[in-house]
Amino acid sequence: MNELIRLLSYMICLAAFLGLNLAYLGWVERKGAGHIQRRTGPKDVGPYGLLQPLADGLKLMSKQLIVPANADRPLYMCAPILTMVPAVLLFVAIPFGEHLVPREFSFGLLMMFAFASVGGMSILIGGWGSGNKYSLIAGARAVSQNVAYEIPMLITAITIVMITGSMDLNEIVRQQGGYIWNWNVFRLDKSILMPVSFLVFFICSLAETNRTPFDMGECEGELVAGYHTEYGGMGFGLFMMAEYANLVIGCSLTTVLFLGGWQSPIGIFPGPHWFLLKMYFLIWSFVWIRWTYPRTTFWGLLNLSWKYLIPFSLVNLLLTALFIKVF
């Protein structure tokens, strides 16, 4: 009974956290973009434009749902929902604090990757189901991109698993306790390539979440709006929200694996505030990158993964194994 109440309250809290994030990350992005671009960003709805997300949501919800004539109706309708499901589901395994984790899985990391790849599929389904050539090209691009970037991401995660000897996310965080040099980014004693490895993981999560400079699924300069060209109203809204949910997930995972999760860098007062601080810092850097960089080509994107990131992460894996065996 106690467990049930605990799970229920977690669900409510998570839903609130998620909803707030999805709404206000859009605001943060627009405001950030505004300040990067010498303008103010949203400012009319509410103080500092704080009610803008509500207005946007209302507008999206009140729009008519139009299904294109030659769309595959079931696929077209289920794609936006399908893209939301893994994004929401994955929050269950994330350790926000030492005891603030909805459900401790001993195989949390595995679950993360398993469900994250569903997100890529939903983009393909949406692109295919729209019956639009732009969406189709975008869907195909997004899938090959997701496949290409999941490999270096997984290999990098495996090095972390080898270091910690656990797939439990909370256990991974626990082992990074103490001071900042105990974080996995700076564990030079396990592999001297660890900081670069963090960078690889960061780039991969940028690509996995379909953000600029890797927004091949969207790339509005070429493919109009990519896989969600034909979506309007809340269908588009769900895709948009899933993007931010994935952003939060990606940054949380990076924080957990490399930046010591809820651990404090100075050894005192560990807790969820550290986790949120690190996560939002990463999210802000995503926003920053998005409004600073142009887009790569599809070719450049795949080249980066297959020619640089994958070989590098393999070298890092071998090096880590060597370090663990020798020292």
Binding site: R38, R39, D215, G221, T292, P294, R295
Partner: peptide, 13 residues
């Protein structure tokens, strides 16, 4: 032109 290439910010400048 830069916006065509996906970089939105230079346009505003």
């Amino acid at each position: 032109y830069i916006m065509d290439l996906g970089g939105f910010t230079p346009l505003m400048y």
